[in-house]
Amino acid sequence: MLLDNTRFAYATGRIRVIERLLIDRSGYNRMIDAATVKEAAEVLSEAGYAVAGGTDIFAGKDPRRLGDSFGAHEIESLLEAERRKTGELLMEVSPDEYIANYFLIKNDYHNIKVILKAEFSGAGTYDPAWLSVPGVYEAGKLAGIITGRLYGDMPEIMRKAVSQALDIFGRTGDPQLSDIVLDSARFAQMKEYAAASGDTFLSGLAVVMIDMSNIKSALRCIKLGKAADFAERVLIRGGSMDISFFNALRDAEPQIIAEQLEGTRYGGIISGGIRSYLDEGKLVSLEKAADSCIIQYADKAKYVAIGPEPVIRYFVVKEYEIMNAGIILAGKTGGIPGNVIRERIRDAYA
């Protein structure tokens, strides 16, 4: 199925207006160089943060809240509100439900994990604030389906994943293995939505996201000394690199690992991250490089005049903008030096 780009005329226009609010490199620099957390948060305020559903979530509260009392809880509330607002905007502007579902299904799988872990713990209850909204499915309905084992309304991939996660936890008592099953299913479903949308750009994005997840997971498994069968489960199918490629890295010398990964189509971007991991044993730089790959892929849509690509690009960049805001505010609250914060933030909107 091919997409009719003109269906995205309104969405593209709306996004072109909104994307002017995205924070660019100078905005991040202003936040990092701000004297106080309050000043840093003001940049977010200019970018439309803290306004959810047309109302300022902090309206009517003590203005000093942005002073010294602007702590971790307030930062989390602010960012969670922005994630929610972004999700709602996506549902509103996207004329194609598959494109919206592609981005929102992550929240559903997160909610499934919360519901299942509450069940595993025996308590059966969880803090509703831990659920991510909006999702493709309403969180309450999802909880009803899972606790009642009434999987009829679920898509095939999700149904199988939930059954498998319950089964694997029942046999092993290991929440990590059930998470891995759900993570694989999430990517499979994202690929399915991308294919259903008929948009090759979105399908390409799914492949890049899977590849990046696999590179990070493969190196994490090597670092943590995980067994081969575990690594095999963690790796997501459907990327551009075969699972056997990652399996071969397991017992390879560090230099060979670096050369093999640098030889992939992402080599130019992730090379520094891999070298940093091999030298220092830290995956921070690699995680940043992996996110850069995704952002750079999305940036290919920068000059597309009309179509789903500008919408997709906006939501990819927005997700990383919220992450960057979290890194900067948490860094400033924790007194982390500006240069360290600067090293950690992802590529800016340009």
């Binding site: 997160h110 994990k113 919360v114 831990w130 995680e287 979290g326």
Partner: peptide, 21 residues
């Protein structure tokens, strides 16, 4: 932990550590 909290959303962090292994 602070760096992980900054990179991950609060909800994902809470869910990740909800049930011990």
């Amino acid at each position: 932990f602070e760096i992980a909290r900054a990179v991950m959303s609060a909800n994902v962090m809470n869910e990740s550590l909800m049930f011990p292994k």
